[in-house]
């Protein structure tokens, strides 16, 4: 037996504890979300009537299955509120991801072209805001964007506008907040692929008569597509379910799905509908999640 094989057995033993932990606290809870999404709302504590109890045995289980309620899902389809928030979430996520790509790519490209010893510094500078509290960074923008905040003061002083502009509670503020918060998530995977690129490829392209622009579009960009995909997924998936940013920065007349779920849960105390909303959101995210999982696995285990 090779050393690798001997090493593998205790390594697998090491995985048992985290495996059980993730099954109990990540996988099993989804079962409860599914179960409660199929139950009826009740004014009780907790506020739902249980669908089935495994302790009651098989016959009870069969009886319970006959009673499964799809009312909550029917509500999701029939009520405009839910459809509209799903659509809005998707539109916001796609738009923000595109903006992030347009802004993040030049930055990552600039980083990858810095002299070697500056690249580490630049990467550190991009990572630090990611480490800084997300809530605080959104709060910082509220400081700037409020009615008599810095932005309006500057605009007024420069005579660009004559009355203060309403920034808070608008979609532009929300997009700004999203782009600001997720920018490091876009830059890092892009930088990772761009910095690993072989510079001699570009020199070859240039020797063969390509202009810098042609070299970029024909060589650099196609080779950076895995980074583009990773960055886009890393931003798109959480943005679809984003709650804090739209809640603090956008207006309240149209909600994203994360806000609808929050409202059903905390304000209306309708746990079944909140669960059904979560199940539907999860179904929506399965394809991008699978793609992301595959990319992540290739990146982390490719050379393993």
């Amino acid at each position: 037996m090779s050393a690798r094989r001997i090493f593998a057995r205790p390594a697998r033993f090491a995985a048992i504890a985290p495996y059980l932990w993730m099954v109990l606290f990540f996988l099993v809870p989804f079962g409860f979300v599914l179960k409660i999404s199929l139950s009826q709302t009740a004014i009780a504590q907790p506020p739902y009537t249980p669908v089935f109890d495994f302790a009651e045995g098989r016959a009870a289980l069969a009886a319970a299955f006959a009673q499964l309620s799809f009312d909550d899902f029917r509500l999701l389809i029939s009520d405009d509120l839910y459809i509209l928030s799903y659509v809005r979430s998707l539109v916001v996520a796609v738009t923000s991801t595109l903006i992030l790509l347009l802004i993040g790519y030049p930055i990552a490209y600039g980083m990858a072209r810095l002299p070697q010893r500056w690249q580490g510094v630049a990467m550190m500078l991009v990572i630090v805001p990611f480490w800084t509290s997300f809530l605080i960074r959104i709060y910082a923008w509220i400081n700037i964007l409020q009615h008599d905040g810095l932005l309006n003061k500057i605009l007024l002083a420069l005579h660009i506008v004559s009355t203060p502009v309403v920034w808070l509670s608008t979609d532009s503020a929300m997009y700004l907040g999203i782009v600001y918060s997720y920018l490091p998530f876009m830059i890092l995977p892009l930088y990772a692929t761009l910095s690993r690129m072989d510079a001699s490829l570009l020199e070859a392209a240039s020797d063969l008569g390509a202009s810098p622009r042609q070299a970029f579009w024909l060589v650099t960009f196609p080779l950076s597509l895995p980074g583009v995909a990773a960055g886009a997924l890393l931003c798109f998936i959480p943005i679809v379910g984003e709650f804090v940013i739209p809640d603090l920065l956008a207006g309240s007349n149209s909600l994203m799905i994360g806000q609808t779920l929050w409202l059903e849960f905390f304000t209306n105390r309708d746990w079944p509908v909140a669960s059904a909303t979560a199940v539907a959101l999860l179904l929506l995210l399965v394809p991008p999640l699978v793609l992301y999982d595959r990319l992540q696995r290739r990146q982390l285990e490719g050379n393993g």
Binding site: E242, F243, G258, L282, L289
Partner: peptide, 8 residues
């Protein structure tokens, strides 16, 4: 969980 929306 790295990308899972926190509400879920």
């Amino acid at each position: 969980p790295l990308v899972m929306p926190e509400v879920i």
